[in-house]
């Protein structure tokens, strides 16, 4: 088990989400997770630090800092690592944003033993909090060629499995 239990204990555990609504500036992690999480910017330090440089649409380089999405999934006790076999390979991470935008990743795409894709939940750009409309959390996927999955205003991460 490589879950960061210690980190998870410091987080508020969601006992019940009534309508899928989240509080101001929080991110909920739910679905096929062992431990649902509610994450605030203050609680971000409990996860593994991560940073990446990425060009914006205009071609200017920026430095994004935040935490590794993999470490969030670990804390939420998602079936990664040795558990990611058999039926668990049908699972995906769906990321939802405040404007309704949604993108997804297969768990295998993220897992270090498979795709090992770096996905960062960033809360800062060039050392400053993200601007309104993009923050408090956004995804940064340094290796994606297109920018479209680098979603703004992330409010939910839902682990689920394909049903077809």
């Amino acid at each position: 088990m490589k879950h960061k239990i210690a980190g998870a204990i410091l987080l508020t555990i969601l006992s019940l989400t009534t309508s899928g609504q989240t509080g101001q500036g929080t991110l909920t992690v739910k679905g096929e997770v062992g431990l649902p999480l509610t994450i605030t910017t203050a609680g971000l330090s409990e996860f593994r630090h991560a940073e990446a440089n990425m060009k914006d649409r205009e071609g200017n380089m920026h430095k994004y800092t935040g935490v590794s999405v993999l470490s969030i999934l670990d804390s939420a006790k998602v079936t990664l690592g040795k558990q990611l076999r058999g039926e668990h390979l049908k699972k995906y991470l769906l990321v939802k944003c405040a404007d309704g935008y949604q993108v997804l990743f297969s768990l295998a795409e993220l897992d270090p033993d498979f795709g090992n894709k770096t996905v960062i939940l960033a809360d800062r750009v060039d050392g400053k909090p993200l601007p309104e409309g993009k923050g408090p959390f956004r995804l940064i996927i340094p290796d994606d060629k297109a920018l479209a999955r680098n979603s703004y205003e992330v409010i939910e991460m839902i682990v689920s499995f394909a049903k077809d």
């Binding site: 609504q21 101001q24 405040a98 404007d99 309104e132 409309g133 205003e153």
Partner: peptide, 10 residues
């Protein structure tokens, strides 16, 4: 609908 001030005017 969401109760979030950031969603004002959306």
């Amino acid at each position: 609908v969401t109760g979030q001030t950031t969603d004002k005017g959306r």
